[in-house]
Design a protein around this nucleic acid. Sequence first.
DNA 1: TTAGTATATATCAGATTTGAGATAATCGAG
DNA 2: CTCGATTATCTCAAATCTGATATATACTAA
Lengths: 93, 93
Amino acid sequence: MTIPYEVFKARMLANPDVKREYDALAPAFEIAAELLRARKRTGLSQAELAERMGTSQSAIARLESGETLPSTKTLLRYAEATKSKVELRLSVA
Amino acid sequence: MTIPYEVFKARMLANPDVKREYDALAPAFEIAAELLRARKRTGLSQAELAERMGTSQSAIARLESGETLPSTKTLLRYAEATKSKVELRLSVA
DNA sequence: TTAGTATATATCAGATTTGAGATAATCGAG
DNA sequence: CTCGATTATCTCAAATCTGATATATACTAA
């Protein structure tokens, strides 16, 4: 008898402190997930992608972990190495 | 008898060295333009937006100049202050 | 289980971005 | 043109990100 994830999430977010934390972290994870998707599309390992980008496997791991909010410069390089293009838009909220 | 801009641009980009420079700079300007559009939507001055973001007018000017490739952290703050949302995607090139 | 591959984490130096203040340049209204 | 507001540029310190190496953990196939 476990609590469904969505229910658990909803309850957690009802707590203002938790929500604040979540809102702060969510974008970082979304970006990380976007990067990961792009790499998975190519079928490259982190090490292979790192080589194409001229960096190290650990740097790729860090990017995909959501540990940092990367610079757009890095996003562009990552995109190029995964034969992707960066679509960036600031639309009305 | 001036040369139409598009023609001028096409000729310039035919030069590999120019093209390389252009490709490197274009993303920065696109991002800058995106930021500017978002601010114009709100009708805020740089100084007013700076205050909302908790930074200085000169920092906003720099962001909108395309001088740097900003961090996604900055993009998110800029978006919030302009009541925008950041849409970021790495799609197949 | 073990070996081999892939990914994650930790640390630290170097690079880039950011914040702030001062000042210059630009723009628009009157 | 002049004033006031807005935007641009410069400089430097502080914050953050990035690269690299070493090492740990996780995963898969045999």
